[in-house]
Design a binder for these strands. Sequence first.
DNA 1: AGTACCACCTGACGGC
DNA 2: TGCCGTCAGGTGGTAC
Length: 260
Amino acid sequence: MPELPEVEMVRRYLVATSLHQTIKDAKVLDRRILSGSSAEHLEQILTGQQFHSVYRHGKRLFLKLNEDLYLAIHLGLTGDLVYLQASEEEPHHTRLLIAFENGHRLAFDDPRIFGEVGLTGSPQSFLEVRRIGPDAMQVGKEDFLKIMRGRKGVIKSALLNQSLVAGLGNLYADEALFHAGICPKSRSLDEAQLSDLYFSIQLTLSTAIKSHADLSKLPDSFLLPHRHPGGRCPQDGEALRHEMIGGRTSYYCPKHQKMA
DNA sequence: AGTACCACCTGACGGC
DNA sequence: TGCCGTCAGGTGGTAC
């Protein structure tokens, strides 16, 4: 599920549902989602607190408990947060369940358990320790150029590297390269190509968010609606190519995505 | 610095 | 129906 646009949707969902309610109790249902704190500690810390705000950086979410304590959440590949009415049943793969005093609950559902939940004193220190780069939608063009300039590896791998720029995943990296007309296997792009790529990333992510991160609502001129075996490039009708690049399945148009 | 692989997990899907 | 291999929008570690 989650790359930057999906995580941003979850952030807005949390703002709309889960803030300013006192937590009655919290239950860790599967310890494998925990990082850095024990189930007992996390449950005890959460009880009696409220979430005051939600901050997103790349694919990471930080729910503020107080000035120097945040619940850090990563959704992994299959994670989701679901706010439940009192009568509603929790999702099948709920790994963390937070019950509010008003009877509603917030469930962290994650079938594959690639997600992660922990506590941190501040998002800044968390991001520093994890060596996570600037958010893909916040980074300025000059900083982006500085980060990407002079790299020797394939560009798609660089886009997926969260320590360079945070937020792009396999699908939106393909999408951004598609709009920039750059083959994902390209190495050492020139300034003009990096600049094109920067604006393509902004276009891709902002359009995805406007489409509520619903792939079926993206413009037909985007790659993603056509990103499947047998799909054709919406720009020039060419059969899309797909292959493993940097260990991930990648789709691109061999006609207009040029090798740098 | 870059890459190739492995590992962590489960569910869905296609082929036989 | 049922088993099996394969694949999946993520990340971290290791070894070269």
